[in-house]
Design a binder for these strands. Structure first.
Lengths: 386, 386
DNA sequence: GCACGGTCTGACACCGGTTTCCAGCCCGGG
DNA sequence: CCCGGGCTGGAAACCGGTGTCAGACCGTGC
């Protein structure tokens, strides 16, 4: 009996860890069979009798393969049989086990969402948009915040994909601009969709936001209000969106006979702090700009801060325009005029596109999907005072 | 040959959908074997030869069971064998397939994160905190935004858990207060941890924030500044956190000889709009309060808005205190004094606790874990003017 | 009545791990 | 020297689905 109990020890609840493998097991081999202690019955999880495909097959008096055919909508099942089995499946509430299914299909029904965007509302919205589309077709989303500057970044991703056998990946900006990542995913043939701010050399894997046109819309708004001394704070110059927004803005101003002087361009980093610092610089110029187009809402909030410290009134002394229409925009006082990005839609689009890529192994290389931001005019923009 | 090709059709890429089962297949059975069209080779995914436990076993000249024993740290393997196999595993970079493993163990190595909190930074932070702890032990996080008022809410959750065989669930406030949900999870024996704002009757499944003490800290701060006409905007009265914060605040004021008059208590809903509306009401009282403790930062932003519209200066005319220390707090002008919640830590704690629950099937019913917010003093609080 | 071709169906092996059960080895004791 | 028990390691079955392929079924044409 003692023997029997000892045996049981090898059947302890599955240790979740696999890492520590290499380290040479520090201690005392003599404590090996340590605990013939009567281990509690080791509650098997979910003992509650879920139906399996075998149950269904038995109930329907067919082989499990036929049930499988019905589940997978194979055309080689007689209509009558199909209906009967489908009815049984429905009435028993049977759902095939994704793990077993995945094991056989070499699929996981999991999609990875990779992001390094500090803007929480942005991430959440993409996440929820994507989830809406994914759930509908039986996929789940696993999130993966990352640091694209970490030396283990790429190997982390590689490991995540291969360990979990992810069926696809959604990449959010700014990490979506990383071509090394895209190359890696292509190499391990993991379908992916990048959410990006502009055309790249990878159109079929893209959901893009038309930043150039959006920035032009801002320019038009400012021009109409009568501003002439217009400044802009761009994001990190390596970001595609920064370039696009800058070019679109600058060109659109030029079209209206206005110029965006280099003195009036500041290089931020899409953060609150950088917005404040850049505004500090821009507002020291003489003559002072009467309007600042901030790279995003965070940056705009930084401009608010500097304006506040300097006692400038918005929009009387200074017009400010943001980009994103994050919740922050309406929280600021005065509320912020900003470009609204249909972020949730971008998530949904990206998910749908990814699913399409996964399903038809060979599709007609689709073009990039695009979404168009639009201007939400609030209180922070007005006619220039002087 | 034509026959052969037709057969192939049954081998089309696995249709991800399982829903439409019941609906009686609308159309034309005669189009049944529709496409003997030469389907492209149907690229099997990940053809790139991952190692399996069999490879390892062959390399080590042992049976796969022995490899399995090493992986699962069974004591019944000779030290020398164990080391040798571990070395081979390490050098090949082998990782056991979670799906196969899960299938055998009846586990998924997936944890669900259920939330209905509109506060994006909150969710993201919990998410990342939890993920840090989960990844380390081989779990992944699947996110599940939900609507606790939807009639399908509970059945959705039930289905999610049973379909994906989730190993555990993390519940965020406010949905974490839903006892029906907790009951359901207990019923289907799915381990869960609730992140909540105060003690409930379910201590072993709790990570709680000490809201009562926190609110007291706010009271002390205001008292020290010399405020006497102090108002409070609470959250939805059904939320535990609202009650806790109210009681803690009110009692602490009383301890200092101050009273929280019913006239100075407004019932909000933790939203920006409700904050503005409640402030409107509170600021109409005579005498006007000199300080408002808002239920959270969103609400505080609403108060800012009303103060802005009324031309009140902060903190000269009105002191405002928030709760959460969300990014918003430092973006507002003037910046908001608020209680900082260690949200990321709460996520981490919750995950660790959940893992503990999952691992030792029978643990000593642990007490709730608690975290303590602390006051971050910024610009929005000061001595009363009058 | 029979060969024939196409439509369905089921037996069987497999996906990559795990547990069960058992046999072989080694050792000390009688 | 034989026996028995404790440690190791392997063969086979299993988890819950899938692909493969042979064969049953059925209506035709001769």
């Amino acid at each position: 009996m003692a023997k029997k109990t000892a045996r049981k020890a090898s059947r302890q609840p599955p240790p979740p860890v696999v890492r520590a493998l290499a380290e040479p097991r520090t201690a005392l081999p003599e404590t090996r069979p340590p605990a013939p202690e009567a281990r509690p019955p080791v509650a098997r999880r979910n003992v509650d009798k879920k139906h399996t495909i075998n149950d269904i097959a038995r109930l329907a008096n067919v082989s499990k393969k036929t049930v499988s055919r019905v589940i997978n909508e194979s055309p080689f099942v007689r209509e009558e049989t199909r209906t009967r089995i489908a009815e049984i499946i429905r009435s028993t509430g049977f759902t095939p086990d994704p793990q077993a299914r995945g094991l056989a299909f070499r699929r996981s029904y999991l999609i990875g969402l990779v992001y390094d965007n500090p803007n929480a509302p942005y991430v959440i919205n993409v996440q929820e948009g994507a989830l809406g589309a994914l759930r509908r077709v039986g996929y789940e989303l696993v999130v993966h915040p990352c640091d694209r500057n970490s030396p283990e970044f790429l190997s982390d991703i590689r490991q995540l994909v291969s360990r979990q056998k992810l069926d696809g990946m959604l990449l959010l900006p700014p990490v979506s601009e990383n071509n090394g990542l895209a190359d890696l995913l292509r190499e391990i043939s993991c379908p992916y969709i990048r959410i990006l701010s502009a055309a790249l050399d990878d159109p079929e894997n893209l959901v893009q936001s038309m930043d150039r046109q959006s920035a032009a819309e801002v320019a038009e708004h400012l021009a109409k209000l009568g501003h002439t001394r217009i400044a802009m704070i761009i994001g990190p110059p390596t970001y595609r969106s920064s370039q696009e927004r800058l070019e679109g803005f600058s060109n659109a101003l030029a079209d209206r006979g206005l110029t965006l002087s280099p003195d009036y361009i500041a290089e931020g980093s899409y953060t609150f702090e950088s917005g404040a610092a850049c505004a500090e610089m821009l507002l020291s110029r003489t003559p002072r700009p009467t309007a600042i187009f901030a790279g995003n809402d965070e940056t705009a909030a930084g401009v608010y801060r500097t304006a506040y410290l300097r006692g400038l009134r918005i929009p009387h002394d200074l017009t400010i325009i943001g980009f994103d229409d994050s919740p922050l925009a309406s929280r600021l006082c005065p509320s912020l005029t900003t470009m609204r990005q249909p972020i949730r839609d971008m998530g949904r689009l990206a998910a749908e596109k990814l699913i399409a890529k996964i399903s038809r192994t060979e599709g007609p290389s689709a073009a990039a999907s695009t979404v168009f931001p639009h201007l939400v005019v609030r209180e922070s923009s007005g006619r220039p005072a002087s």
